[in-house]
Design a protein around this nucleic acid. Structure first.
Lengths: 344, 344
DNA sequence: GCCTCCTACTGAACCGGTAAAGTCTCTATT
DNA sequence: AATAGAGACTTTACCGGTTCAGTAGGAGGC
């Protein structure tokens, strides 16, 4: 991209107008001591009159802060568009960034390797001051890379997955347990779960928790679990195969790992002539607006995704400004019963 | 954000290792003439061995390109999360940016004024090399601002809305007409439309086109149009009030301005005991995966949103690299009939 | 009245590149 | 043999800030 001949106003112009040196202007704008109130005022007035603001680029180069945080997301584009989660997460992150006049550098990547490379080049090129890492897998390479680079990074995921990185996480295990208990309390004994991508760490946490929760029930409950790719199509396929069995054989309740798959499940049930919730109960996850737009409405494990994103951003700032590492749980998803769940 | 003591490798190190001057390295990496093949090779080898890549920040400051494209989106966060459109659009944009190793700077803003301010500060601070502008309104201030700043900008919207900016657009009027013709051909004579935000330019284009399309039909067709905020809730409310009238009075077909509202409409119909498509036909817009996940599946005006985003990015690059302004229509949305439309 | 210490500010170096002008060497021309 | 010109680099001056070592001037101490 080529430059355009826009007449730029720089720190030098401001300094000249205020009758001081560049250095003084810099001191003023960084709220550092060593200037009299009068001079400070004069500088700010001059800046205001000229409509000047320090150039982030020059600031970065000069070795101070970098007002950008990175976020790479590694999921197929088509799925992302549908996952209400991400946009809402991003908007939560943004809400905090804006207060600090920071920006979000977003990139969709196709593989974890690409993401690692991107982080490295972003960081080494001083493009970002810190990064948000999502979708952890077992043996994820990113904690080691962040460590090696000294890149301030906040991991979204359970501490057991994020290898010592500062993390922000929801207690998926407890949430899954709660979901199962709720269905069990309604009287369900054959409970299935349509999970997300098997490779993702939080999926396996949920899988394990589901297994245990169901095993702990009396009278002996039976569990089915299916892994998908989070897409509606996969959710539909999984539901279809779960419900294909005969009346006394198939599950009477299904828990989904996101909203889209639950919506798909709802439509599969209808297509198979099964009534929800009379013949089968469905329970969604995340609880975007979508859950209230179906008929029947979808019961869901709800989540303040926006707040989640905000907390992640706040944690990242804490880290960047010298805070120590830590583990930040955010509230466990909470059950919101609606029309898609009932006794079997 | 504070700097960290990472040992950085700079152009100087590469120059030293290759036994040349900084200038030579710069020439090599910018593919400029004036270097022998041998030297060029030596430089690239040295760079590779040191794992060096030019710092975008320094490049920007030195006055050449800016490898970042800005996108500000002005819609409530909660809605954005649900609009499959944006994430898919963004992923399309990204797909082109990546090829040019460009990044996307994303910001959610709360008002058009904030967006204008942001563009100005991004551009003046050399944070972006160009910008993508979406959601045009009547009398939108952005074309004038882009013009004044000399900011390369691509507008997403019909040329009549985008005040002389280079624009990429779909022919909404034709698509609306086609939608109406299709429904009319099925035999519908009472056709309603649940539109998007009235303030947006493309909404009024669709509104006008709808009016005309319906007026042109014989025997005299009747039209209802409602404006919403694109949210599912609003779509549900609109549908409810449209369908509240008696059997012979209410519309027999409803066209929606996005997917979410159509899904909401579907559930309202069910809740009111109306069968789709027997009692009422529904037609969605944009056609995300969502339309295939409902029961019945939703007929829709389909759109290659990903490709749309890609075309926008390509157009922006054209503009930045000196291309003249222009108007780039992308294919008109095309009707995809599914299970939600039938003769009345 | 001299020395010291502060305060308020200046000047210059530097961040990591780009770009334009300058230098040196070698070949081709007359 | 002298000269011009091209090719291959190097030198140097920025870009727009930050930072740090100075320094001028005034207050305070003795």
């Amino acid at each position: 991209m080529t430059a355009t001949p826009t007449p730029r106003v720089t720190i030098k112009d401001v300094a000249a107008r205020a009758g001081v040196s560049k250095g003084a202007v810099s001191l003023a704008f960084n709220r550092k001591p060593g200037l009299s109130e009068a001079t400070r005022d004069r500088i700010f007035r001059a800046a205001r009159e000229l409509g000047w603001a320090p150039s982030p680029t020059a600031r970065t180069l000069a070795g101070s802060r970098v007002d950008v945080v990175g976020l790479a997301v590694c999921r197929p584009a088509r799925l992302l568009g549908l996952e209400p989660f991400y946009m809402e997460f991003i908007s939560g992150v943004e809400s905090v960034l804006v207060e600090r006049s920071c920006s979000l550098l977003l990139r969709l990547v196709r593989s974890p390797e690409e993401e690692v490379g991107l982080m490295e080049s972003w960081w080494r090129g001083r493009q970002i001051g810190g990064s948000i890492l999502v979708d952890f897998r077992a043996g994820d390479p990113r904690p080691a890379v962040a460590e090696r680079l000294g890149l301030p990074a906040v991991a979204v995921g359970h501490p057991s997955l994020t290898g010592g990185l500062t993390s922000v996480w929801t207690d998926d295990a407890t949430a899954v347990t709660e979901a199962v208990r709720y269905l069990a309390a309604l009287g369900h004994r054959r409970i299935a779960r349509v999970g997300g991508a098997a490779a993702l760490g939080h999926t396996s946490i949920r899988t394990t928790a589901f297994d245990e929760a169901v095993r702990g029930l009396e009278p002996a409950a039976r569990a089915w679990q299916v892994a998908t790719d989070f897409s509606g199509d996969a959710g539909a396929r999984a539901t279809r195969s779960l419900l294909a069995a005969g009346r006394g054989e198939r599950p009477t309740a299904i828990v989904y790992d996101n909203d889209i798959m639950a919506v798909a499940g709802l439509s599969v049930a209808a297509e198979m002539g099964l009534r929800v919730p009379d013949d089968v109960s469905l329970l969604a996850w995340d609880d975007s607006q979508l859950c209230r737009l179906t008929h029947p409405t979808l019961s869901a494990m709800s989540h303040d995704v926006h707040g989640f994103g905000a907390e992640v951003a706040r944690t990242l700032f804490g880290l960047i400004t010298g805070g120590g590492p830590g583990s930040h749980p955010v509230p466990t998803p909470v059950l919101t019963p609606r029309g898609s769940t009932a006794p079997p």
